[in-house]
Structures are given as structure tokens and as C-alpha cells.
Amino acid sequence: MLEVQDLHVYYDAIHALKGISFSVARGEIVTLLGANGAGKTTTLKTVSGLLRPRRGSVGLAGQALEGLEPHEIVRLGVAHVPEGRKIFPRLTVLENLKTGAYSRRSGSIGEDMDHVFVLFPRLKERSRQMAGTLSGGEQQMLAIGRGLMARPKLLLLDEPSMGLAPIVVEQIFETIQSINREGVTILLVEQNAAIALAVSHRGYVLETGCTILEGRSADLIHNDLVRQAYLGG
């Protein structure tokens, strides 16, 4: 479904991605692991069009994405849940969700909203509240729900566990798995390697802008390098 080939991205003079290649098949959860500065977020931003690659290609089901504007990429079925959630604090939960459906003009928005509320019942209770008043976990749920409102075929999740209590992280990853079972392909970026490998099918390990390792998640968990670097021995 998603095919990334030899991606090179620069921040002015800084060479952030030095030829990253990976692929995500339909229905998979694929995770990108790596330390700070490895290029995980940069990769997601490039896929969703926020950054332009200097070289390389990003293909979605055969269509080239590089060079398209972010809003065009959303229309093609890619939703990006950015790092740090980035919900709209002074809009209500309901307005946040409606904004997620901006790229669609069809009438089934209410249906999708109900679906988000089934996945995250807490959001329904707080639907008229300002999003900025939600707790961190609720904000993450809202960010994911808002992404789903675009009816994506591919969901990009950037560090959904960031700054959350372990129990909340667990809940959120359970929901991510059920979203995946409903047929949404997921590309997941995580620092929490243990949980990311537990829920994903395959994984890639990034280091300073390069892919250094790839494999089935079940294998990566037992890989020495991964164990030492990301799982604490």
C-alpha cells in the first residue's frame, strides 16, 4: 500500500533522512523504531506532505505522493496524527472531530462520529468541552479520533504513548489494534519499543537517518541489538 524508496530529506543544510526505504502492506501495522533524532517523525511528515524530500519517492497504491500538498494527500486517504497530539485547544471536542472530516463533503460524518465515540466513549462524555481542558490521554484519543474522521486507508501515528501513564498507553494501543482489525493500515512511530513491537506485524529500526534493521516484530523482540538499544537488555 505504501512504498517508500530511498528518501532523502534536508532541514536546510542538515541531512535528516539519508536514504530510507520501507513498505507497508494493506492491513498491516508497521512500526518505525529509533532513538531521538533517528528521523522517525521526519519520515512521517514527509509521507503526509509537510516536508518535501530532496530525493526518493513515496508511493501510495501506485500513486506518487511526493510533491503533493498535505491536503491533497489527506484526500487520497492518508491521515496523520501528529506528535504531541496537536489538537485544537480552543475548539470543542465535537468541532475537533468535525475538522478531521474537512476533506470529505459527504453526509456520513455523523456515522463516523458515532464510530469514534464507540472506540473512545470518554470523548462522547466530553464532546462539548474545549479540547484544551482534556487530560493527556483524552487528548491523544481525540487526536486519533480526529484522524479517523478523514476515513483514512492509511493512518500515520506519531508517538501515541508520549507522556501518558502506562495504563492509558495500554488502552490506546488496544484501540489502535481494533482500528487495524477494521481494515485501516497503520504506520506507527514509537519510542516505546516494547509495546510497539507487541502490537505491530513488522518493524524497521532507524538510526541517524538510515534504516539499519527490519523484520517481523516477533523476531525483532528477540534481536540482540533491539534488546540492548531499545528494550533495556
Binding site: 491536503h71 485544537f88 480552543r90 475548539l91 468541532e95 475538522t99 478531521g100 476533506s103 480526529r146
Partner: peptide, 16 residues
């Protein structure tokens, strides 16, 4: 308003 609140998030929501 989404742009006012967070331009990057607005862009990835499909807002031109």
C-alpha cells in the same frame, strides 16, 4: 479556527 489553533495539525487534517 483550526489554522489559528495549530497550523500543522490543520494542514494534516486536509485543510488547504
Amino acid at each position: 479556527k483550526a489554522i489559528r489553533e495549530d497550523e500543522i495539525a490543520a494542514a494534516v487534517m486536509g485543510i488547504p
